[in-house]
Amino acid sequence: MDTLFGIPLPLFYGQLLLGLINGAFYAMLSLGLSVIFGLLGIVNLVHGALFMTGAFTAWILLDTFGLGFWWSLALAPLIVGAFGILIERLLLRHLYGLDHMYGLVLTLGLALVIEGAFRNKYGSGGLAYQIPDALRGATNLGFIVLPYYRGAVVGISLVVCLLTWALIEKTRLGARLRAATENAPMVQAFGINVPVLVTLTYGAGVALAACAGVLAAPIYSVNPQMGANLIIVVFAIVVIGGMGSIMGSVLSGFGFGVIEALTKVFYPQASSTVIFLCMVAVLLFRPSGLFGRRS
């Protein structure tokens, strides 16, 4: 059997694929977190809970309304995004300009309420969600067996990330968003409705989290803790990539998915800590993040 540094190649490729799939979720979640932080200055700790809400929404849409995966992929981000808009309008709005600590604490509280509510209703055991019919099965790529669904997750995530990037970097709306991130009062003075822009941005970031949640539903079991376990790692990724940097979040999302998986192969004890080690190093030596710039 072929080996690499004493590791059997199939195991190596298997972990690499796992890393890419985790990376797909990391990228979508950190993208939303990063955009929200850039414009609102809010550390959105409720992001993980909204990811979980996305997965549950998909499950409920199927269970109660009989709507399948593809409907969920379109509807869940809209539903959860609308919920996000409500959160921004009712709660976050009061915190702009205050110390970051208050945003952090409020979103943490919100995450507890949402997770607790789902736990109350559905218990902490997982619910199963079927892979859509069109994506059942797997293909043999020669060096690895790739289940269609997992390949699709990586593909969809890449497309969503690229679309978001294009929306922010290449469109008029995105230009306004970037300008407001730099200097909100000035943009407001030009007659652009910044509060609406802020609300929509938060809604869009939350919709990204929900979209990731729908994609995650068939892979992980749908359970109330699924977001809480992920959010801290995603948070580390945003810090490493540079808060507010779009490409930075996407690249470090996929990058750290892979790094984490490879650490699992070569030195399993460190696989959970490697990302935090990098986070501390980045904060100390390059506080604007690997891809970020900071005034």
Binding site: L108, G109, L110, A111, L112, V113, G116, A117, R119
Partner: peptide, 8 residues
């Protein structure tokens, strides 16, 4: 959890 969150 819910109560703690609301207090936060």
């Amino acid at each position: 959890m819910i109560a703690q969150g609301i207090v936060f």
